[in-house]
Design a protein around this nucleic acid. Structure first.
Lengths: 205, 205
DNA sequence: TTGACAAGCGACCATCGGTCGCTATATAAT
DNA sequence: ATTATATAGCGACCGATGGTCGCTTGTCAA
């Protein structure tokens, strides 16, 4: 608030978080394209140009928010992997953790998932980094499971992508068929055991 | 092209298709937000305002394109269901058919998947209609499979959503782990049989 | 030849993301 | 106490955007 004094790094960080919080709320209500920097500024009780002292562009607000949240998720996943040795339970817990991202991130996550290819190089790179870090952790869990004979041979990278995407689609759906935990549980059952009653035939399709 | 004469409905439709084609190409190259109506008009060799004689808004171009394509897909799915009685093969063929949507629709489909909640009511409704028509067909196939004892009891609606979403994510990924048909085949194996080597335990997680 | 009508477009509008330079204030130096 | 310096914050402005409106240009019917 005060003019003339320098903001401490802590104050800077606090203001950034405040802006991100306000922005995520507006974006979930209205959608990213329809949420203007003017609105965000007004809701954060500052002039529009002041926003640009904290974030270089509108896109960066989203990128920053998702980057931070993904880093948080990655940290928790490290804990999960360390504390759980069953590949199945690892996957289930990782996905349950993912499901726990606050609702206000829903639209932001979907937006970046869709638009990341068209962002500026810097943002693409930042998102790519955290996303692949996360995806590769899941991939490793799967590969370990395969090595241990708990999972069959499969495309671990594809599997990881499908899992992440499925959680996202559970979070985002406007027509849930059950509550999120139930849907996730059934989703994991499907991914782990499939929906067929019989044994798979040799050779697949 | 000619001024002063009335366009026949066929000509109108032809012009619309031309605009859609041009728009989809630009949108896949540049992304939807960064593709301007001015660019689309220029690429379609017409003045910007003439675009608005064929489509009410920029959004409507996308909605129209996806609506039409989804209707096409639905028609083909009717044929697949009629010509194939095995629930497993029905699902595999439906998804393979879905995978066949031309690449230029990729970005459009993703965009609408992300943004549909924030579109104008009319567009939301149009998209909802075709999307649920498609989703419900898949749901029925699954439910029939369950009734026939080929599939176990499951949340058919969730399963249908996951399948559709997974195909979309195969189409859209910027880092494919194999060619699309291979990825789809493995995806279907996962959904049908899971990745676990052992039998599922009673009670799940 | 003329009247009616529609295709097509140029000019305009509010709003957008983003920039720039001014103002106001708190500290540091004298 | 006064001045110089540095910076938080903002109002005014920019080019571009999606969308609108009324004019021009051409064709057909009378």
């Amino acid at each position: 608030m005060p003019k003339g004094i320098m903001l401490t790094p802590e104050q800077q960080a606090e203001r950034r978080e405040e802006i991100v919080g306000v922005a995520l709320r507006l974006i979930e209500e209205t959608g990213f394209p329809k949420t203007s920097m003017r609105e965000i500024a007004a809701s954060a009780n500052m002039g529009k140009s002041s926003l640009y002292d904290f974030f270089k562009t509108k896109d960066e607000i989203l990128v920053y928010a998702v980057e931070k949240k993904t880093e948080e998720i990655i940290q928790k996943v490290h804990g999960i992997i360390a504390g759980e040795s069953s590949p199945e339970q690892r996957l289930r817990k990782i996905m349950l953790n993912h499901l726990g991202v606050p609702k206000r991130y829903r639209t932001a996550l979907m937006w970046l998932n869709t638009e990341s290819d068209y962002l500026e190089e810097e943002y693409r790179e930042r998102l790519r980094a955290v996303r692949y870090a996360y995806q590769d952790m899941i991939k490793s869990v799967i590969e370990n499971g395969v090595a241990a004979g708990v999972f069959r041979e499969t495309d671990a990278d594809l599997m990881a992508r499908l899992l992440i995407n499925s959680v996202l689609s559970i979070l985002y759906t406007s027509r849930p068929s059950a509550d999120p935990e139930k849907m996730l549980d059934e989703t994991m059952n499907i991914f782990l055991h499939g929906i067929m009653t019989g044994r798979p035939k040799e050779g697949g399709a």
